[in-house]
Design a protein around this nucleic acid. Structure first.
Lengths: 200, 200
DNA sequence: CGCCAAATTGATGTACATCAATTGGGGTGG
DNA sequence: CCACCCCAATTGATGTACATCAATTTGGCG
């Protein structure tokens, strides 16, 4: 039904308020969906990867978010209107869509608690556990764990600054819960204690 | 299909991790869904009112959240399993469900940006605009606007403390954007400027 | 009228933001 | 292959918004 498309690292798949003509299903790579305020403040609202839908739901025919490729990305592209029409004719597809959106709602509300209630180090611990579980579930996990997000991006995901994220990493390292490997990878040394700090 | 049930103010409809046997559709009143951490910190993840579904989606057969009646509440109760079975047989219902969940996802991600990026007064301004729009859309709006949430509940919704919420109210009052009417109501004096402060 | 819970306001403390300097790792060209 | 560069990450010094602790004030209700 849909054509295949590719994006290279740091390329944008689409931007907020653009006409939402296409729905994507990621087949390779990792994507950050974000919203940016007029004054430049940015909130990354989700990390998407293989199997995830992107560009849905939209709002009044326009994309709600920006989608930036964090790695090289491949996706199937579906015409938005055909996609909706198709859903309307296939009950299994409609249920699968409801389940997919429900899952994202669960994750979004979990992150609401993370950002609203947790301290900086707890947030970073939660991020590491979450990203690890995500990558394991999609069979794209490495040892050590490659994050694919810069400190700034993690900060924009957790509602912190890059310096605070960096300090939290250092604190978790000093607690011997993780080891920092190069600039973009982390070895989780004590998953139980890390999860315990992550709270949610 | 479902039986009618009632709760009085401050009564809990269900709690996190309870077996999710029933899905509710609210027919009257206002409900706060929340998640509470072991140490007592609480995040209100959504305000639900007439027309909204409650108790869905669940996770592994258990409620994800607590639901507390903020006013007297009435709802239709559906058996959870029958509800899912019903959805699986009716394409229009399945699409309506996907649309309902999508709408909540939109609101949850918007609040992610509010909590992650906005300052305290911006958050309170956003809360007022959001609650006002919600009540208008469901035809339960009053003049002045009755909030039905205590300062503590607003704080738990916005990731702040009750004192900070109170100070933000005072600041918005001093800016002549709102007027405080009694303990539980607010008159919005300048919706445009209030929305502008709310940013999102 | 008087009680009590909630809201407001004030004083102080602290976690995180901000500003600034240094370090480190990956890639390129000599 | 090494030296250099550049960007990201780390670390340090300081500032500030919000949290915390505490004292009044307000308003809804019997």
């Amino acid at each position: 039904m849909g054509g295949r498309r590719r994006w290279s690292k740091r390329e944008f798949m689409y931007r907020t308020d653009e006409p939402a003509r296409t729905v994507y299903k990621i087949t390779k790579g990792i994507v950050a969906e974000s919203r940016t305020l007029d004054d430049g403040r940015r909130q990354i609202i989700g990390i998407r990867t293989v199997g995830d839908l992107c560009g849905y739901p939209e709002h009044r025919g326009r994309y709600l978010f920006c989608a930036e490729a964090l790695t090289e990305v491949e996706a199937c592209a579906f015409d938005g209107e055909k996609f909706v029409a198709f859903i309307g004719r296939d009950i299994d597809l409609a249920c699968a869509l409801a389940e997919d959106v429900s899952d994202r709602l669960r994750r979004a509300t979990r992150n609401l608690t993370v950002i609203g209630q947790l301290k900086s180090t707890e947030r970073v611990a939660h991020f590491l556990v979450e990203i690890h579980e995500l990558y394991v579930s999609r069979h794209i996990c490495t040892h050590p764990l490659t994050l694919h997000l810069t400190r700034q991006e993690i900060a924009d995901y957790l509602g912190l600054t890059l310096e605070t994220v960096s300090r939290s990493f250092s604190r978790l390292r000093d607690m011997r819960l993780i080891a920092l490997v190069g600039g973009d990878a982390v070895a989780i040394l004590d998953e139980d204690r890390l999860s315990h700090i992550a709270k949610v």
